[in-house]
Design a protein around this nucleic acid. Sequence first.
DNA 1: TGCCAGGCCCTCTTTAGGGCCTT
Length: 203
Amino acid sequence: MASADSLVVLDFETSGMSPDYGDRAIEIGAVRLEKGVVVDEFQALMNPGFRVSGFIENFTGISNQMLAKAPPCEQVMLQFADFFGDSNLLAHNASFDQRFLDSEMKLIKRAYKGEFCCSMLVGRRVFQDAPNHKLGTLVNYVDLPVDGQFHRALYDAQMTSGIWLAMLEKIRADYACHDISFATMKKLSRVSKKQVAGFLASM
DNA sequence: TGCCAGGCCCTCTTTAGGGCCTT
């Protein structure tokens, strides 16, 4: 059974909120975790073929000038598909990143077998006392060292992996759970908040 | 931030509405 501490954590920067309305990925960042250790990283800007808005330039720090020099999305996504292979996947608010991954993979005619888990949904259950469950808030909540730029793909993927490992550590400590599987974390992301303690105690 | 999304989740719910998250 796949372990929860061996997977690929990914984050997309994009031109907007919805691939169904023509938005594209402009940067992918990812880290590969094996037994809770970062063993590989992937980062690339990609040219969507159109200019992104001033809001996106300001929000991400990724300029149209930077994107003009970047390889096209299709070229980067082929490389990224080889990077993550059939690994299980993790993202913060995964429904967002999954929509873009599915859209970009469809364009390059590639499929993938890995399943997504969402660190935000798990975070809402494991860190119920956090002020909110934004990525940056949880980074502070679990006291991760902050030395990079949020809203850049690799940094956000690194921070997501740190939050994920902190959640696994808390579950191990609070419930004496060891060998936590990816499937267990996916189930945890769906149980009601009131059922979290009972669910984990039964593991 | 917006002529624009979508899934989750709570509640003043389920014949619905609105906040949270992601860019």
